[in-house]
Amino acid sequence: MKPTTDTTEKILTAIESQRVTPRPTWYFTLRNSLFWVPGIITTLLGAYTVAGLLYGVLHPHPNPLFLIAAIPLLWVISFMLFSMITISLLRKTHSGYRHTTLQLLLISVASSIILGLLFYAITQDANDNNMKTYYRYPTEHQNDFFERNYSTLRIN
């Protein structure tokens, strides 16, 4: 088509003289996929946390403070950090901006819970065996670790 206005002609000339070419589709596919990476990490961290907590709740330790000790604090902090990164990056995806922060957070938490339940179900047998061994034959090292780190939490 022949340009009908000066502005149009200038624009088309600039595109030609600067040798601008469209970026390939794979570039955008790859870039958009990268936005999902923190989302996947967040979900996995959250799922791991949920599975750990579930185990703690369903297999009560003789000392109730064990549950507090068992909360994987590092995972919880990482989960919160990655959630924030995920939400800000999801906003940059094709349709992520259509959801509110709360909706995105709920989706992230729900995915973690579902995946956490799955993790728990898959590893249940192995966990049961490990914990049976732990309860029956607690090693000196394990007792020392608990005393050293969590004795202040003890309810007398």
């Binding site: 624009i11 595109i15 070419t21 970026r23 589709t25």
Partner: peptide, 11 residues
């Protein structure tokens, strides 16, 4: 604007 549109048309 139009250079950006052209460059990112596949997006």
């Amino acid at each position: 604007i139009f250079i950006k549109v052209y460059r990112n048309i596949n997006e």
